[in-house]
């Protein structure tokens, strides 16, 4: 008895369908973190491209793949099926396009960069700081005087708990009591993609000048971050930066080995 083999065209359709279903199952259901439609569309486009490549690199394989389509178009005995496909397929695609393009009550998608580029210099505490060369003045204590450094970190922790945790959370994960009321939600410092990627001068700029200090070049920015130089001293700002890195275990971006 001849072993059953799924027709090649059906295999070609099934591969992306199965990839899609499994991905949805894993991320949406099991992990509870859905994949956004914009990313899923890109993923599926290249899964389809890869499937096409794997199915068509030989002549025999390509012939077998397109044979049913060729037969549908050329075989006179499939006239009815052909007519049905030629009506249903454009209608389905048209309906999909219509659904895609119909305006919806939801706000349009927004391209938002989480890390706006800092200026080269910034004015804060009545001084001008060069962000290209600015360093945390207390960072050196980490090696030179660990006890004094620990005191600085503890002082930074107190500043953080008094001022920052309401939004950024007591675990520094961006899930403070007020976080859900903000859009976009506050930065998650535990994420390897936030402060671990940045120099301390960047944090100094963002904390000292807050939302209103964001660059004009890519306005409008949305940020609820207050101008902390109005509430914290320069020393407190550096202390809280030490605390952010100390608590999360990240190291600030630098170019020198220890």
């Amino acid at each position: 008895m001849k072993a059953f083999r799924i027709p090649r065209l059906l295999q070609f359709v099934l591969v992306p369908v199965v990839v899609y279903a499994v991905t949805r199952l894993i991320f949406d259901v099991l992990l509870g973190q859905l994949i956004p439609a914009s990313l899923m569309t890109m993923y599926m486009f290249f899964v389809l491209a890869g499937t096409f490549m794997a199915f068509t690199f030989t002549e025999d394989g390509t012939r077998e793949l397109v044979a049913p389509i060729k037969a549908l178009v050329e075989d006179p005995s499939r006239k009815w099926l052909r007519n049905v496909v030629f009506v249903v397929l454009p209608l389905a695609l048209g309906f999909y396009t219509y659904q895609l393009r119909t305006p919806k009550p939801e706000a349009p998608l927004e391209l938002r960069s989480i890390h706006p580029a800092p200026p080269s210099t910034v004015k804060a505490y009545d001084k001008r700081f060069n962000l290209l060369t600015l360093e945390n003045p207390y960072r050196k204590l980490q090696k030179e005087d660990p006890e004094a450094f620990a005191e600085m970190v503890a002082a930074g922790a107190a500043v953080y708990i008094e001022n920052c945790q309401y939004c950024h959370g007591d675990k520094l994960d961006g899930r403070g009591p007020y976080a859900q009321g903000l859009n976009p939600v506050p930065a998650n410092f535990q994420d390897v993609g936030t402060i671990a990627q940045l120099q301390e001068s960047y944090l100094f700029w963002r904390i000292a000048t807050g939302g209103p200090g964001l660059p004009k070049e890519a306005a409008p920015w949305i940020s609820s971050m207050p101008i902390w130089q109005d509430f914290l001293s320069e020393e407190e700002t550096w202390q809280v930066i030490l605390y952010l890195y100390d608590y999360t275990g990240h190291a600030p971006r630098s170019w020198e080995h220890e």
């Binding site: 956004p36 927004e110 938002r112 976009p184």
Partner: peptide, 14 residues
């Protein structure tokens, strides 16, 4: 790139 619904479901832009 997130719709508002997706943003809410994920709990943030990451």
């Amino acid at each position: 790139v997130l719709s508002n619904e997706e943003l809410k479901a994920l709990g943030g832009p990451y």
